[in-house]
Nucleic acid binder design. Structure first.
Length: 529
RNA sequence: GAUUCGGUAGCUCAGCUGGUAGAGCAUUACACUUUUAAUGUAGGGGUCCUGGGUUCGAGUCCCAGCCGGAUCACCA
């Protein structure tokens, strides 16, 4: 009695809705009947909904349909008195279960059906069914239940999504609900689950392709002393025992190159990177880049390899290289178009900036109404010019090649074109998906490039790179000629799964915390850094 | 960070120039032993995001804040 009162008091404190109070009441009733709503025993699942739905009709006599055990979440109930249809959903699909009172309650005691099944079972509960497969009068492959057991009671009502002939009704669309409560989103929106299956498939295809070609998967530090390998603001943290700051990596490039120095000729890593920048449809503070580095190759080889890899990934995912993306049809068939950044600017603006100095390019920017900052060097100005006037034009996969040296501090100088480097970016659907170089392996040149970055930093560019002396020391031992690439995995997944937002290819996209903790509010405002 | 749109029942949404809070689904009760957005009948359910203000009276108007989306800025 005391426990009951305590429980009632606590539930009052929780501000439970009426359906939530009811479900808690049902939980108690189950326990009072001696039924554990959260049993410990394994349930011997021997079949899936999809297996039943897709294979029963062609092979009805197979023994395996005679004694099945299936588990899943109750997604709908059509109660007709002494019989009912229950739709259950398991990992891959849905199937309906025919539950007849006299089958699950063969004796005089009908309470399992009349009370447990009809009164205490809710949509969202997870149940186990034992029975056999059959086809209903209306022709639907179904399960005839002989036994039914509760495997987990749901205390929170699920948003109900109804569907008929592929059309859905009252689907949960609120992005805040979907991203904060992804678990519920995954339950009620099957297409979301499908997108994430595809993401896993994409990563597996890439990994297989790399492994098949002799690459070795490695792990490198996430906590770094010097956040190198890219131009971005890092997250900073602190190591207590050493009493020094650490940075969450913005890239793993410099570590993979150290491994190339160490004698591994082909290394790759799916690197979770962290950048302390804004968030939008194509940016999340943590995101995944695949980087790989191959000794004795150059950026031409890398273009060939990349287009073959993406062609194969698209093919394995969709069975075709032609992929629907919004209004566009993206063709992943190799080879991809190649165009130099200066040609791209010339084509789209009519200005040939390839021979211009910093001031000349600045005046072109002004003519085109492109905002510039005094801190911008020649490289940054060209980058700005390209992204403002060209980037969105490249819908089909296109390699933009031969960037100016100023914007590529880790890239080898071009073998024949003065002032350029051997670099390409891969544009798909107007977005950068990959960035690759013939890697700079001249330690003296590399030191000078770092020093250029320091000058940019002094001009006010807060994303210029730091000097990494240990990386330079590694290069001094000699790094073989190497080509490397970084591929934005989240963006690639968006493009291959027809998603408009990075949040739709990340299980748990970053969001502002839901509730402000009182403690945090009471603390001094200075502590927010 | 800026601009803009939004936040009403578990879900999807309506709510006019300010006047007692609405629908469908879900839920509860009853009926129904092959239904499938099951059906029929009858109910219950609200911190209208939060806090101020204007007003006799605020879901509605004003101000501030919180959360989200879109666009822009930074960036991949």
């Amino acid at each position: 009695m005391l426990r009951l009162l305590l429980r009632l008091f606590m539930e009052n404190q929780l501000h439970l809705s009426e359906p939530e109070r009811l479900r808690r009441q049902k939980l108690i009733e189950l326990q009072e009947m001696g039924i554990n709503p959260y049993p410990a025993e394994a349930f011997p699942v021997n079949i899936t909904a999809t297996d039943i739905k897709s294979n029963f009709e062609a092979d009805k006599e197979n023994q395996k349909w005679k004694e099945i055990a299936i588990a899943g979440r109750v997604m709908g109930v059509r109660d007709m008195g002494k019989a009912a249809f229950v739709v259950i959903q398991d990992d891959l699909g849905k199937v309906q279960v025919y539950v007849r009172r006299d089958d699950i309650c063969p004796s005089e005691d009908k309470s399992l059906y009349d009370v447990v099944f009809k009164k205490l079972l809710d949509i969202g509960d997870i149940i186990g069914i034992k029975g056999f497969v059959f086809i209903t009068k209306t022709g639907e492959v179904s399960i005839h239940a002989n036994e039914i057991s509760i495997l987990s009671k749901a205390l929170r009502p699920l948003p109900i999504v109804k569907e008929k002939e592929g059309e859905t009704f009252d689907a949960v669309t609120d992005p805040e609900f979907r991203y904060r409560q992804r678990y519920a989103d995954l339950i009620v929106n099957p297409h979301v689950k499908d997108t994430f299956r595809k993401r896993t498939q994409i990563i597996r295809s890439i990994r297989d392709f790399l492994n098949d070609h002799g690459a070795m998967e490695v792990d490198t530090p996430v906590l770094q002393n010097i956040p190198g390998g890219a131009a971005a603001r890092p997250f900073i943290t602190h190591h207590n025992a050493l009493d020094i700051p650490f940075y969450l990596r913005i890239a793993n490039e410099l570590y993979l190159k150290r491994l190339i120095v160490g004698g591994f000729d082909w290394v790759y890593e799916f690197s979770r990177n962290f950048r302390n920048e804004g968030m939008d449809r194509t940016h999340n503070p943590e995101f995944t880049i695949l980087e790989f580095y191959v000794a004795y190759k150059d950026y031409y080889w890398m273009m060939d390899f990349t287009e073959r890899m993406l062609e194969k990934v698209a093919m394995e995912l969709h069975g075709t290289t032609s992929v629907q993306l919004g209004e566009n049809q993206i063709e992943f068939k190799a080879p991809f178009k190649r165009i130099s950044i200066f040609e791209a600017i010339l084509e789209n603006t009519g200005f040939d900036v390839s021979q211009m100095d910093e001031e000349g390019i600045r005046s072109v920017c002004q003519k085109l109404n492109i905002h510039t900052e005094p801190s911008m060097g020649k490289g940054k100005l060209i980058d700005e010019l390209f992204s403002e006037t060209c980037e969105s034009k490249f819908v089909q996969p296109t390699f933009i090649i031969d960037y100016p040296v100023e914007m590529s501090p880790l890239t080898k100088k071009h073998r024949s074109k003065e002032g350029l480097v051997e670099r390409f970016e891969l544009m798909i659907n107007g977005k950068e998906v990959a960035n690759a170089y013939s890697e700079l392996n001249d330690p003296i040149d590399q030191r000078e490039r770092f020093e250029e970055q320091i000058k940019l930093m002094e001009r006010g560019d807060d994303e210029a790179m730091f000097i990494d002396d240990d990386f330079l020391r590694a290069l001094e031992y000699g790094m073989p000629p190497t080509s490397g690439i970084g591929i934005g995995i989240d963006r690639l997944c968006m493009m291959l799964t027809n998603q408009q937002s990075i949040q739709d290819v990340l299980f748990f996209p970053q969001m502002r915390p839901e509730v402000r903790h009182k403690l945090a509010e009471e603390e001094s405002p200075e502590s927010s850094n």
